[in-house]
Nucleic acid binder design. Structure first.
Lengths: 350, 350
DNA sequence: CTGAAAGCGCTTACAG
DNA sequence: CTGAAAGCGCTTACAG
């Protein structure tokens, strides 16, 4: 038997070791660990000393096996669809969620493994998480369907089709399109282009595409505008090409609305305008719509209707924790309105 | 007793339920689950049927309590220091790590909770992770010290001061500075500015700042250049102001090297140049150094010495898995060289 | 090929 | 205030 004095490596020190050293029983140590019931001060001191001496740390897995909350939350973003990742998982988004969790004493994981239904269920069953925040929700999302069926707590950042009894927070893409066009029309623009989400997103997958397009159609109708739009893949090159083709179709465009899922969309558009000799905003205004991080890192900086990703993730996390801690689970459904930030890329006409 | 037919919600189905339904013992089910030893086909079928019928999913936590690898890896980025987060945690970085993990059948978590020593130790002790990839490593990093002391497996993305016996992957910041200045000198530039990391990073925290600065000093010496540099906070405004002040000091600068930890640094610099009427690259070249995502989303697009964050994270994850699966743990120490990508922001002089 | 027994590290009633 | 006992869901030898 090796000497007990050498530093224990790998071989874990258990609650039993602590009990032995302190000369008490295992349940007593457990009680002290969990700050429960009445324990003699003298006993507590002895046990705490033993804990410190041995460098004991409780075994989370074993604790959780017995039940009880894990006080752990997870963010899940499905890697199979990296569409929006860069926009959602910007620094401030991560920090917002981590901050909200930390303030309430929750742990937060960002799950980036491929998730199967079994694994998802297991996250809850095994007490690995108390709740999850689902990103990049599609209209008919298997994660949502499964979690709803099992009645496991979760919050969507985004929206599926059937929202009954579900809690979500989402950006108000429909309203923002209306506002964006209203803003440009008020500046005198009538020939306005739009760069928006890929077409297949509208039908198959993601709600933002649908909502944005609905808003766009309402805006056209409301202000009696003609439609000039491209559904792009949101990459630099696509954005560049789409802007180019938009200007081929109508060289008289005086403004373009650009959905920003990352800083590349607007950049592509700006570069296409520059290449054709359009100055921004003198010859053509560009108005961004999206998370706020992407508007200012560009030349010229973008006037935009924008959301704070920090605030959205902070609130999503808070909603998750509230759902967990409150008795009555009345679903919260939040649509976040954007803020208009005027920078350099827009200008009144005439 | 409620009818057994109704869907079980929350109350988990255990291996015992499966055993009962299949009319076998618990160990038999366990064997089938783990694909071990010889089991009669007929028995296996019966058990699998029961599993399907009950919708049984094994309890990870309980499995791990008995020992065995968790096949789970974690990325840890300390949120208390959001310095570089946006650069490191770009989409491709996440996807690279997730891909490498998935290919080998590993789960991958991105830890964004505040981490204490206890919690870190627990990650390993509780078999929550087999290994961790540490991001944003500081020269004297408590995570590294602790994990090394306990001999728990980990890989650094970055470098601490004492690297003996440690495995890491890092960008070669020292060499890249040499290369960047060599490149500009070859184009005929002699008056070259530099925008680099904050000064306090050099001394207190992060290795990249130190390495980059060493490389810079070597470059100045090697090419006999005069020093024109600013240590900035890597934000848009700082970058803007630093460039401005650099041009105040020396309006004859014909080139600027910009460290890109996100797309804002270079953008701020470009905007400052534009404000002062310098055309890029005609009047002043701008050369980026950093992850490749940030070079192209800008007007003009940036010529840069760049790294692929996908590849770096992919390799870091692979190194972690290798360390876990290979008998002999000889530490791997990898410095990744950058690639030069010529775009629009640099130009030969005279 | 399969079952009874013991145990992983902890917590929760239940008795003292 | 504290300990003996049982159990969380699973796996691993050990016997048949």
């Amino acid at each position: 038997m090796p000497g007990k004095k050498s530093k224990m490596v790998k071989q874990s020190i258990t609650i039993a070791d602590v009990a032995r050293v302190a000369g008490v029983s295992v349940p007593t140590v457990s009680r002290i660990l969990n700050k429960k019931e009445y324990v003699a001060d003298e006993t507590r001191d002895r046990v705490n000393e033993a804990i410190k001496e041995l460098g004991y740390v409780p075994h989370f897995q074993a604790q959780r096996l017995r039940g009880g909350a894990s006080r752990t939350l997870a963010l899940h973003y499905p890697v199979e669809s990296p569409h929006l990742l860069s926009s959602v998982v910007a620094t401030p988004y991560i920090i917002g969620a981590a901050t909200a969790a930390g303030e309430q004493g929750y742990f937060l994981n960002f799950l980036i493994s491929q998730l199967t239904p079994d694994i998802l269920l297991n996250m809850y069953r095994s007490n690995q998480v108390d709740g999850m925040i689902l990103l990049q929700v599609s209209l008919d999302d298997w994660r949502v369907n499964l979690l709803r069926e099992y009645d496991y707590p979760f919050v969507m950042h985004g929206r599926c089709a059937d929202l009954e009894n579900l809690t979500f927070i989402d950006l108000d893409f429909e309203t923002v399109m209306l506002q964006a066009f209203e803003h440009l029309v008020a500046l005198g623009h009538r020939e306005i282009g739009l760069l928006t989400y890929p077409q297949h997103w509208r039908t198959t997958t993601l709600a933002p595409a649908t909502h944005a397009f609905n808003g766009y159609e309402r805006a056209l109708h409301k202000y009696g505008l003609q439609a000039f739009y491209r559904e792009t893949d949101l990459r630099f090159e696509d954005s560049f090409a789409a802007t180019d083709s938009l200007l081929d179709e109508n060289p008289q465009l005086t403004a373009i609305v650009v959905i920003m899922t990352n800083h590349l969309t607007a950049a592509g558009s700006l570069q296409a305008l520059a290449k054709r000799g359009y100055r921004v905003p003198e010859d053509c205004s560009v108005l961004g719509v999206g998370f706020g991080e992407f508007g200012q890192g560009i030349t010229p900086s973008l006037t935009a209707f924008e959301w704070s990703s920090y605030e959205v993730s902070y609130q999503a996390t808070q909603m998750m924790i509230e759902m967990l801690t409150q008795e009555t689970r009345s679903p919260q459904q939040v649509l976040v309105p954007p803020k208009l930030v005027i920078r350099e890329s827009t200008k009144a006409i005439r």
